[in-house]
């Protein structure tokens, strides 16, 4: 319980700040909703890229799986968005478990590309082969079919905002918990020296499989939230071209950190929002920013902030062990 509390402070503070922002800039609510949803997607990719060092050029596929699972359910089967969401989580799990073993044994470059191929093939399947169910390019509309859920009527944008933020908070707490768990350390260790991990007795294949599946689940959850938010889904949400967005956001925010995905998303969506008000395209600004991060600030926004804070306030890690050591030295 104590540990749950410990990993909750940071996320709670962040969500509090987001709430403040929402009331300070009331006309930015749509932006903030997207910020929360996209952050979850980036958090998924961050497990792959940041923790495990695997680049995937096909993350939109996993987003699309989640979005379409919810959309198809709401358009053809049921009316409860929560059931749709559960379905998406399940699909994310299944897809991750099935594709994982085939993909993660590949070397980095192949892993990136097979995901791109999967995305192209998957979206083709959704768009063309499942045309009767997904209505292809026209997209699925189901806003009117969504029923009310207990407590919050998430069909209202300002209620959905609270709902999305609550999900974001839960996910972020779990994410922070994962980061501080043995699993988080194992991910980071595998990233730099997988072979050594094997010789410490860890089944690195399974650990990477877990990471891949978690990424898939988070992407699917994000997709599902998009689907509920829009009340409409079409293939453009998950085009293979959009694979760059999530990678770039991960990188800018600070790969391999807990809060990096949020700040990366903030920077990325912010730039997109700002730039497109003036010159209508974001690639130039984002490309330059990415190069800058790659060569100058390799830890990204949050990674560097964290480093500065550590410097200023001193590292507080392993206090218990240090106490143990000084106690021992005393006796």
């Amino acid at each position: 319980m104590n540990r749950i509390l410990k990993v909750s402070y940071g996320p709670a503070l962040l969500v509090f700040l987001i709430l403040m922002a929402r009331f300070t800039f009331p006309n930015k609510m749509t932006f903030i909703i997207e910020l929360a949803i996209f952050s979850i997607y980036v958090m998924g990719n961050n497990i792959l890229y940041g923790y495990l060092g695997m680049v995937s050029f096909g993350q939109p596929f996993y987003l699309g799986v989640g979005a379409y699972a919810t959309a198809i359910f709401l358009a053809h089967v049921g009316t409860n968005p929560l059931v749709g969401m559960l379905l998406s989580l399940l699909m994310g799990l299944v897809v991750g478990l099935i594709l994982g073993p085939a993909f993660i044994r590949l070397r980095g470059d192949y892993f990136a590309l097979i995901n791109a191929a999967t995305c192209a093939i998957g979206m083709f399947t959704i768009e063309k082969l499942l045309l009767p169910i997904t209505r292809g390019d026209d997209g699925l509309w189901y806003r009117a079919r969504m029923s009310q859920i207990p407590f919050v009527d998430i069909r209202m944008p300002d209620k959905f905002f609270l709902f999305a933020l609550a999900i974001f908070l839960i996910v972020l707490i779990l994410y922070n918990f994962m980061d501080k768990s043995a699993l988080g350390s194992s991910f980071r260790a595998i990233r730099v020296n997988e072979s050594k991990m094997k010789f410490l007795g860890y089944d690195t294949f399974k650990i990477r499989w877990i990471g891949f599946t978690l990424a898939s689940i988070l992407s699917a959850l994000s997709g599902s939230l998009y689907a509920i938010n829009f009340g409409f889904v079409n293939p453009s949400l998950a085009e293979p071209h959009r694979a760059a967005e999530v990678l770039v956001a991960t990188l800018i925010g600070g790969a391999g950190t807990v809060f990096g995905p949020f700040f990366g998303t903030l920077a990325f969506l912010g730039i997109k929002d700002l730039v497109s008000q003036y010159i209508a395209h974001w690639e130039l600004a984002v490309g330059i920013l990415t190069l800058l991060v790659l060569f100058r600030f390799s830890k990204g926004i949050w990674g560097n902030t964290e480093a500065i804070m550590n410097e200023k306030f001193g590292k507080k890690r392993n206090r218990s062990v240090k106490k143990l050591l000084t106690d021992k030295a005393a006796t």
């Binding site: 043995a182 350390s185 980071r188 260790a189 730099v192 991990m197 010789f199 860890y202 890690r317």
Partner: peptide, 17 residues
Amino acid sequence: HVFDNLSVFENVALAFF
């Protein structure tokens, strides 16, 4: 062969864990 990105503590802790 050690984990360059982790702390000394974490390196040994992973082995012991």
